Computed example of a mutant assay.
Amino acid sequence: MTSSDLLFHVGFDGEPVADPYEIVDAGLEDPRHTTRVPALAELLADGSAAPEERYLACYALTSWGEAAGYRAVVEAARNPAAVAWYDTIIDRTYSVDGTFAQLAVAMEDGSDLAEEKGSGPDRALAVTALVGLADRVYFDGKLEYFLDAASVAANLEVIAATVRRGVRSLADGVPQRFDLSTQLVDLAAAAARTDAPLAIALATEVLAATPSHRALNHAVDLVYRTSGPERRGFAGYLAAVGDDAIRSRVTAALASS
């Protein structure tokens, strides 16, 4: 049995485990996960190790609130396509890399442990790094998993810059490998947790570039999340550019409050 088998296929009570993600999930509640952290950090840094194993090490460390995991996320975000584990998970819908979408899940899972372990500042840097990738890397609807109100407030400028980079890409007709417009609308919607006018402005910019039905459908969520004159103005915009299905959802959203 290899060292990676011991890390990923043997449970904390010595039982065999087929799915390594089960061990990661168990470690969220089991403090014995800390005994595996040094070996995971070593595996993560080992350039000769299998990319899939290095990714699992990063995922586990990030899920368990470890600074080494967050630092690896920040480093990977510098050049996503060049990181060793890129494309080791492929999204079934768009046939693009799925590793960063899963790391978004790990970021959310590890938030409480990061606070306990004092790695919050490292996690905050990783949050910023991932947000800044949203115009280039697919997140499968998982961006908001780790974007709580505090994270949004700390990253409003990054959110706005990322959305606007994406809008320029869409407006310039750059070929996209996934539904970028909807992902950008979702990122804009996250900003509503602390700045509703900015969220609506960003979503409007996205839809002005590519008013796809799916993006419009996601944008209706902003009508539910916001209030005031900006909300009614945005609802009117969606009703004007959307079809009957969108108008029906907008009407229901306005009636909800």
Rank of each mutant, 00 (worst) to 15 (best):
T2R: 07
S3D: 15
F8Q: 12
F8P: 12
F12Y: 15
G14Q: 10
E15I: 01
V17G: 12
V17R: 08
P20N: 12
Y21S: 04
I23Y: 05
D25S: 13
A26R: 08
A26S: 10
L28M: 15
P31W: 07
P31A: 12
P31V: 14
R32K: 14
H33F: 11
H33E: 10
V37W: 09
P38H: 04
A45H: 09
D46V: 07
G47L: 10
A50T: 06
E52K: 11
E53I: 00
R54I: 06
Y55W: 10
A57R: 00
C58M: 13
A60F: 10
T62N: 06
W64G: 04
G65M: 07
E66M: 11
E66I: 11
A68S: 15
G69S: 13
A76S: 02
A81C: 09
V83P: 03
V83F: 05
D87G: 10
T88M: 10
I89R: 09
I90Y: 02
T99R: 06
T99P: 03
A101Y: 09
Q102S: 13
Q102Y: 05
A106N: 05
M107H: 04
D109A: 14
S111R: 12
K117I: 02
P121S: 06
D122T: 07
D122L: 09
D122G: 08
D122K: 07
A124S: 11
A126T: 00
A129F: 11
L130M: 15
L133G: 05
D135G: 04
E144V: 03
Y145H: 13
F146N: 05
A153I: 00
A154C: 01
N155S: 09
E157W: 00
E157I: 00
E157Y: 01
A160Y: 01
V163Q: 02
R164W: 02
L170N: 10
V174C: 07
V174I: 12
V174M: 10
P175I: 04
D179T: 00
L180F: 13
S181Q: 11
Q183E: 15
L184T: 11
L184Q: 13
V185M: 14
L187S: 12
L187H: 08
A189T: 10
A192C: 06
T194I: 01
T194K: 06
L198S: 15
I200S: 03
T204I: 01
S212I: 04
N217W: 14
H218G: 00
A219Q: 02
V220C: 12
Y224V: 07
R225C: 08
T226M: 11
G228K: 06
G228F: 05
P229H: 05
E230C: 08
F234N: 06
F234P: 05
L238H: 07
V241I: 15
G242V: 06
D243Y: 08
R247W: 08
S248L: 07
R249P: 01
V250F: 03
T251S: 15
A252S: 14
S256Q: 08
S257C: 09
